[in-house]
Computed example of a mutant assay.
Amino acid sequence: MTEQAPRRGRDETREERADRKWGELIQEVRVAQTGVQILFGFLLTVVFQPKYAQLSSADQIIYIVTVVLGACATGALIGPVSLHRLVSGRRVKPEAVRLAGRLTFVGLLLLLATMTCSLLLILRVATHDGYVPWLVGAVVCWYLVCWYGLPIWARFRHSDPEDS
């Protein structure tokens, strides 16, 4: 009599797995989309404020870079919705999920860059102090730990090599 290894994972077809992963991805994207859209909306109003003309040219360049990064982040994080709509019913969901996952990852990197530049600009205008780059660097390190460090640690610490 042979002893079977305990069963692990889910018993799902490729299409069922794609459906599940798509649902999970869309929930994740909703969180990021909301944040980037609110941030981008606020950024768009800055240029119409009287104080904008008083910003140094360096701060105006930081602002322009921030707005462009915000626009790119918004595009990448809304991209999975458009992708899904355009390929829906074409029997390419597993491939669409992979592509949407990559778009989401790029969108999160762009969101990180947008938030970094926003924080840099705000703190430069608010304090005019030399510690601003250090403070921004500390916050970026925090984002990196929360968004990438802990997930990567958990992935390697708690996942089975067979799950790859």
Rank of each mutant, 00 (worst) to 15 (best):
V87M: 09
S82Q: 09
D129E: 11
T104Q: 03
V65M: 06
V65P: 08
D160C: 04
G70W: 02
L121S: 04
S56L: 07
R85E: 05
L109R: 05
V67L: 15
Q4M: 10
Q4Y: 12
R8I: 11
T127K: 08
W22A: 01
R8L: 12
L43V: 03
A18R: 01
V36T: 11
V36A: 07
T34H: 07
T127A: 09
A126G: 08
I62Q: 00
R17C: 01
Y52P: 00
I26A: 04
E15S: 13
V92T: 14
I38G: 06
L121F: 05
F42N: 08
L123H: 05
I62N: 03
K51C: 04
T104A: 04
K21I: 03
I38P: 05
K93F: 06
C117T: 13
M1Y: 08
V139R: 02
I62G: 00
L43C: 02
Y143W: 12
G23M: 11
G107Q: 00
G149K: 05
Y131W: 15
C141M: 15
E16A: 09
H84Q: 13
Q37L: 14
V36F: 01
I152Y: 11
L77R: 01
C72E: 07
S88T: 05
L120S: 06
L69Y: 03
W134L: 14
C146N: 14
T2Y: 14
V65G: 05
L123E: 10
Y131S: 08
R155L: 12
R8W: 09
L55H: 08
R20Y: 08
S118G: 10
R7M: 09
P133E: 14
L120W: 13
E16N: 05
T104I: 05
R17H: 06
E15H: 13
G137E: 03
T116F: 02
Q60D: 05
L109T: 11
E24A: 14
L25W: 02
R7D: 11
V139P: 06
R155T: 10
A113H: 05
Q37T: 13
A138R: 09
L43M: 09
R102A: 10
F105E: 03
D11G: 04
R17Y: 00
G101N: 08
R10F: 15
V139W: 04
L69V: 02
R30H: 15
G149I: 03
D11E: 14
V132K: 05
T127Q: 10
V46A: 12
Q27S: 08
Q33G: 00
L135Q: 10
A5V: 11
L83S: 04
T116Y: 03
M1N: 10
S88P: 00
I26G: 01
S57F: 14
I61H: 06
L39T: 10
